[in-house]
């Protein structure tokens, strides 16, 4: 079911990239169009609860991002806890009660609807993607599905740090619907003595380097056919 949506969205991302690298900006441009929103910004979560805006599509998005950082409230702040925060109208009672300072300020800046999607994989909190609309209104099912899938792509890009080449065999898919990927991430935390985030990046890097689907690599780890070594001299994938 998802395949068609994925292919359509990825095709659009590649078109937007126009022969260049697929970056967070490319993905956000495609997302703004697909979700029918007016703009977007992305922030990453740093240690000690700090946040940093790494992308803003326009001046309004930039100002909204500043507001959230300054006021310490808003959908994006809530979403960094791991649950999306969807506000179809910042002037309705729910939004005003939830973000008493941020909601009116955001309306002043030019946003009436805000949708904050956590960029996360289980315990790995990469950041938050915020979408805004100048007019009130929910994302319909299709827009939401497109937004969630492209947010997964944005998450993969941020996780792997930086843009990727179009020509590369791997596509920045998160493959979050395969439990083996998460089980393997957990196993790598112990094998490599690293955080979950580093474990997942190493797993993904191995898949790219060997031109294998992430799921197959994860399965080999779970089946204990593949072990990762914390010693960089030995490299990954030493069979033991």
């Amino acid at each position: 079911m998802t395949a068609q949506r994925r292919i359509r969205l990825w095709t659009r991302v590649v078109e937007v990239a126009d022969g260049g690298r697929v970056t967070l900006g490319t993905v956000c441009t495609a997302l703004i169009e697909a979700a029918g929103v007016d703009g977007a910004w992305a922030s990453v979560l740093l240690p000690a609860n700090l946040r940093e805006t790494v992308y803003a599509s326009d001046a309004v998005a930039e100002r909204l991002s500043d507001l959230a950082l300054t006021l310490g409230e808003g959908p994006g702040v809530d979403a960094s806890g791991g649950t999306p925060a969807l506000a179809a109208d910042l002037l309705d009672i729910d939004s005003q009660a939830r973000w008493p300072v941020f909601a009116p300020a955001a309306v002043q800046v030019g946003a009436r609807a805000l949708f904050a999607l956590p960029l996360q994989v289980g315990t790995i909190q990469v950041g938050v993607l915020d979408l805004y609309r100048a007019a009130p209104g929910s994302l319909d099912d299709d827009q939401l599905a497109d937004a969630l899938l492209l947010a997964d792509t944005a998450c993969a890009i941020l996780l792997d740090a930086g843009g990727m080449d179009i020509g590369s065999a791997s596509r920045p898919h998160l493959d979050a619907h395969h439990p083996e990927v998460h089980q393997a991430t957990g196993m790598l935390i112990v094998q490599l003595r690293v955080t979950a985030s580093v474990a997942l990046v190493r797993l993904r890097a191995y898949a790219y380097a060997h031109d294998l689907p992430l799921r197959d690599v994860a399965r080999s780890v779970v089946a204990r056919r593949l072990r990762f070594s914390p010693d960089p001299d030995i490299g990954d994938g030493g069979l033991q």
Binding site: T83, P84, L86, T123, L148, Q183, M187, V222
Partner: peptide, 24 residues
């Protein structure tokens, strides 16, 4: 939608923890 997404992510956390325990 918010609740569903949170529940789905909780399941991923469980899978990651299973992996840690299985290896340990």
């Amino acid at each position: 939608t918010e609740q569903l997404q949170a529940a789905l992510n909780s399941r991923i956390v469980i899978e990651q923890a299973k992996g840690v325990l299985a290896e340990r």
